[in-house]
């Protein structure tokens, strides 16, 4: 079954997704993040620009990510990587979400995951 998840579903998990990607890939820029998520989920999760950048902004403000800038020709590219607090936060977020999944499974009475 091929489906693209609704933006409401993605919204609450976007921070976790971004943090986890940064934990696995030293440093990434915005476009790269959207492409990697597409790749990993086989296009099932498509992060919109409108959701990604506000989230990156908030992560920066919270001190969870640090930024390095590099010039690509005339334009500037911002590379995001996890700060030490970001690393701990990622673990928290991931285990919180794992727990959430279990609770939802129970709550929605999901016996077997769709293949």
């Amino acid at each position: 079954m091929h489906m693209i998840y609704s933006s409401e579903l993605i919204k609450g998990t976007l921070k976790t997704i971004v943090l986890k990607l940064l934990a696995d890939n030293k440093r990434m820029y915005g476009y790269e993040i959207t492409q990697r998520v597409k790749e990993l989920t086989m296009d099932k999760i498509q992060i919109t620009e409108g959701a990604l950048y506000p989230t990156l902004h908030a992560l920066e403000e919270d001190g969870l990510v640090t930024i390095e800038t590099e010039y690509i020709g005339k334009r500037m590219r911002k590379y995001y990587s996890l700060s030490p607090t970001g690393k701990t936060k990622t673990q928290e977020k991931v285990s919180e979400f794992a727990d959430f999944i279990n609770t939802m499974k129970f709550l929605l009475d999901i016996k077997t995951l769709p293949a």
Binding site: G30, Y31, Y53, L56, H57, R75, R77, K78
Partner: peptide, 15 residues
């Protein structure tokens, strides 16, 4: 916001 402008610029350029 300048930082958002730069992010969007790079993103569009990549696409």
């Amino acid at each position: 916001l300048e930082s958002l402008q730069l992010n969007l610029l790079d993103h569009v350029c990549c696409i």
